[in-house]
Simulated assay, not measured.
Amino acid sequence: MPRFEPFRALRFATSSLDTVIAPPYDVLSDADVDALEARSPTNIVRVDVPRGGPDRYRRAAETLADWQRRGVLVPDATETFTIYRMRFTDAGGARRNLAGVVGGLELTDPGSGGVLPHERTTPKASTDRLDLTRATRANLSPVWGLSLASGLTALLDEPAEQVGRVMDEGVEHAVERVSDPDRIAAIRDQLAADDVLIADGHHRYAISRSYRDEVRAATGRTDTAAEQTLAFVGELVAEQLSVEAIHRLYDDVSLADLRAALATRFELTPLPEPTPATLAAMQAEGFLVLVGPDRAERLTPRAGAFDGVRSLDGVWLEETLANVPASVSYQHGLGEVTAAVRDGRATAAVLIRPVSVDEIERTAREGLLMPPKSTFFTPKLKTGFVIRQLGD
């Protein structure tokens, strides 16, 4: 089972956290970064999303060190955990209260258990995150993990010392410091009782493992802070989690060829332009939707077409289009998907249904992997509430 350890968290000293906290780096456009930098000269994006030439990582490290010297960032007096709560209304109108704990999650090797991926990952050639970690010697953005051990939520129910709260787009993000040794021990022991599934941040976790290996090679040690990475871990419970779909965009293929391939396993019938009501109907009635530049069609699985195939939309599409030489990319959000097709950035798209929490757990327990980009956990965790240092 994985180790999950407290650490001396580095935190912003300001009470105006909304000026210094940011969304995770991988959802930010250049315009987003401009806006965040304009909020404050000490917004975390100045470290987490450094700009400029080859020296940008060195400058990010210098900025991080300067903020510590000036008291912009202050370390906790002792090793702590951080309870991170998000309160929000999901896309279906349900009110949710999500609670997890931020700490240092053990970095395990692929296949060794303890920390499990839940989907295959797409290759990323960029070394940006590894270069930034080398320079700053810090974990800035947390991995999102889901504990398969029941009981974590109950341990987090009691409020701890509040250290920050931010409202953003209708979501309340609140963090509380846990410094009581008995409560720290209880949380640590609970998370050691079962595996942790990576929900979001597979790439960040892999980069942290690469950095760990570099530290081991350089020092000969296996007891440094690089043995863990910054992680938010919550319990895998359906009432807390909001899981949305990531739809498929297809290119380098004609619409006629794509339709012909889909027709081998699906019945295609015309639909009006998709709306949020269409997404709800997809879940209730069990169909997918093909979106073309001037038409939409309902994709209803043919009888027996997927016998012996796991009941996941992403798997169905992989099976159906295995011999179609198309390029596939991934997009969250109905409006963004239809715009990509309408603007010619994709030949067509297929809208799929969100994966259920039960299916996520079943997949993990059976040691299987979903197709890439099968799940989109919302809301996204903020960067900057907690920074974990990797140096001595």
Rank of each mutant, 00 (worst) to 15 (best):
R87N: 08
G164L: 00
A185F: 08
P123T: 12
D109C: 02
E106Y: 07
L148M: 15
A193Y: 07
L107A: 08
L107S: 06
D194Q: 14
A206F: 01
S179P: 03
R177Q: 13
L191M: 06
L197C: 11
G113I: 05
A135V: 09
D180I: 05
I184R: 07
I207T: 14
P123Q: 11
D194R: 14
R134T: 12
V178L: 11
R96K: 14
G114Y: 14
Y84W: 07
D182E: 14
G164R: 01
R177N: 09
V166M: 01
P123K: 14
D182V: 02
I83M: 03
Q162F: 01
Y205L: 06
A174N: 08
L116F: 08
A99G: 04
A193K: 13
G151S: 10
T133S: 10
M86I: 01
T122W: 12
D90T: 02
Y205K: 08
G100D: 13
T224M: 07
D194T: 09
E169N: 06
H173G: 06
D90E: 08
E79I: 09
V175C: 06
Y84P: 02
F88H: 04
T219F: 09
D195F: 10
L146H: 07
V101N: 01
A217E: 14
L156G: 02
A99P: 00
A193F: 02
R216C: 03
D157Q: 15
R165S: 13
S179M: 09
T78E: 15
S141H: 01
D128S: 13
P159C: 10
A218C: 08
G113W: 10
G220H: 06
A193G: 11
T122E: 15
R96V: 05
I184T: 12
G113E: 11
L140D: 01
R129H: 07
V115H: 13
Q190I: 05
E79K: 13
R134G: 11
N97R: 06
A217Q: 13
V215K: 07
T153V: 11
T224I: 08
L152Q: 09
A206I: 02
G104N: 02
H202K: 13
R212Q: 03
R95L: 04
P123Y: 11
P110C: 10
L116Y: 06
R216V: 13
D128R: 15
A149L: 09
T153I: 09
R120M: 13
L197S: 06
R96T: 08
L152S: 06
T153Y: 12
D195A: 15
Q190D: 11
T224V: 06
S208E: 04
L155T: 08
W144T: 02
V143Y: 05
G201V: 05
S208R: 04
G170C: 01
I83L: 00
T136K: 05
D189Y: 10
T222N: 11
I207R: 05
P142K: 02
A135P: 10
P159H: 11
A218D: 15
I198D: 03
Y84L: 00
T224N: 06
R188Q: 15
G201Q: 03
V166C: 04
R212V: 02
A91P: 03
T127A: 12
A149H: 10
V175W: 00
A99D: 03
G104P: 02
S141G: 03
S141N: 06
R96N: 11
R216F: 04
D168L: 15
R216H: 10
R204Y: 02
T136R: 07
